[in-house]
Amino acid sequence: MYALVALGYTLVYGIIELINFAHGEIVTFGAFVGLAVLAALAGTPLSAAATALPAAFLVSMAVTALLGVTLERFAYRPLRGADRLMALISALGASIFLMNAMMLAIGRDSKPFPAYLSEPVLQRGDLVVRQLDLFLIGLTILLCALLDLFVRRTRIGRAMRSVAQDQEAARMCGVSVNATVSITFVLGSAMGAAAGILNGLYYGVIRFDMGFLLGIKAFTAAVLGGIGNLRGAVVGGFVLGISESLIPAILAAPPFSVPEIFDYKDAVAFGILILVLMVKPSGILGEEVPEKA
């Protein structure tokens, strides 16, 4: 799941070299749209998992993509080519704006997310594997693979990569930079929406500010995998997810025996982030880029 959110970051960063601070909020938005669809379908013949979930995913991904494009159009495009610092502040502003807009629209409380696919498929002692877990992993891998294929194989994907390399040159070759960046936001936001719904299904509740933490963690994953590198983001997502649950568990058990560590679970993610950025900013799969002089 971190992998999916991380994809959104990496995609946008790879193309326009801007951290989309608002991506976490995009994910949250996607989750709420998904929730709205599921709520609307509840009680109708379409409420079964086989129909309701695909509907929720499709609608949410479409609507969220629209939000992503709008965001890009208003908050980022006017600042393309301007100072990085300014674009960053605008992105931060967008994040704060969206977070608070959702808070005002939906309220401060957590909203319950309907449970789907909760039957266990495998049960051995404490270990329970639900359908949902398999679905989550499966869908993540599927979407990542599709995206990878899209970027590598299609004409638009090529355009995206060319814009990432050199906007000016791409424009000369007849690639519409605006359109390409928009498509990037469509893809990134749609992935974010899917991640938002999965997040809701997995934890059973969603909240207006869940994107904040999720966003930072996913960004960590993206950096971990080498930002701008799609496959790296997926690997980074899995690595972060696993280490986040393992590290506190290890520290709480002997020989460290600090059970208080669970209070600091979120701090661990930030700690990993800072550590990764310090030690290897290019990520585990990243390559060194020569400094432009």
Binding site: F74, A82, M86, I89, S90, I96, N100, A101, L104
Partner: peptide
């Protein structure tokens, strides 16, 4: 709406 306005303010000012 305070934070909402601050967020919007940041975007608008930058632009």
């Amino acid at each position: 709406y305070r934070m909402l306005i601050f967020g919007l303010l940041m975007i608008l000012l930058m632009i």
